[in-house]
Simulated scan of single mutants.
Amino acid sequence: MILTLAMLLDAWLGEPDWLWRRFPHPAVTMGRGVAGLDARLNRGAMRRARGVAAILLLVAGAALAGLTITAIPDLGLLEIAFAAILLAHRSLVDHVRAVARALRASPEAGREAVSRIVGRDTRDMDAAQIARAAIESAAENLSDGVIAPIFWYMIAGLPGMMVYKVVNTADSMIGYRTPRHEAFGWAAARLDDVMNWMPARLTALVLLASHGALHHLSRVPGDARRHRSPNAGWPEAALAPILGLALAGPRSYDGRMQDFPWVNAGGRRTTNSADIDAACAALWRAWGLALIVVAVLGLVGHLA
């Protein structure tokens, strides 16, 4: 019941500016913790071991915070609020839709909007590349920001959700193969891969099932393996045939064009703002199916 209410609360309120202008968002607090450990521990010798120690401290802190919140006798209201905050469906859709609105205004506005949600180079993107980047971000973040937190809540309650979020935050900050972070961020990146392994595949299943498109399921693993990420390819490989699009493909990072393979290579490559809108609608359909599953499982657990 708590998770069901949290999903509904997130869908209703999203990320209210009035709240986060007054209080630090939990994800911001987690980010500060990651940055602090990076500054203090990422130096000298044995950086991989130091990175392992850092992620263990972050996991322990997140689990303790989750246990503390669930122990407060308030009928679960605080737990519902925290779970809703740690979900990101409404804000995901809002950010992706903002790219569609900007792209309809001009390519320049579209590039500015999409630069806020992707890590690739955006300066020279054309309209199709802008739309494709937004859709890929939508698919990946449906897994990372929605299905994975739901999955870990169902496995280990609010502590499990908070542990997942701090690991995912750490991966987004230090889990890169750069001279500074390749060793120190190794543990964060590998643990994030492990914790996202099942949610990524469940996300693909939820996307296909919510669109009556399970006949595409047999092709998803092959397309997912073409993606550079062991997990992100799964939701992209599911969303691509639903929309009839080719996703992934060549893109630029740090000024260098990289020839990544296409996912659903036979799909349409001339993406536009209408395709972004269609992707947002697909996210809501997947969310709706996830809500039904969570509610039914919650009811079964309550009656058992």
Rank of each mutant, 00 (worst) to 15 (best):
P159D: 06
I150D: 09
S143P: 05
A156I: 07
M125S: 03
Y153C: 04
P107V: 07
A128Y: 11
M154K: 14
T122D: 06
V146W: 14
S115H: 09
D144N: 03
A113P: 11
Y153T: 08
I150V: 15
V114P: 14
V146S: 09
V146Y: 15
I130A: 03
Y153P: 13
V118N: 08
M154D: 12
S115C: 08
Q129A: 05
G157Y: 12
M125F: 14
D126W: 04
I150Q: 12
M154G: 13
I150Y: 04
R116A: 15
L142W: 02
R123N: 03
A133S: 15
G145I: 09
G157Q: 13
R111E: 12
A113S: 12
E112V: 05
A134M: 10
P159I: 06
V114M: 15
A109V: 02
F151S: 11
S137M: 03
A113L: 14
D124M: 03
W152R: 01
V146D: 10
A139T: 00
L158A: 06
R111M: 12
A156W: 10
A134W: 10
D121Y: 08
A109T: 02
G110E: 14
I117L: 10
I130R: 10
V114S: 13
M161V: 03
E112Q: 06
I117R: 05
D126S: 01
M125W: 05
E112F: 01
I150R: 07
E140L: 11
A156N: 09
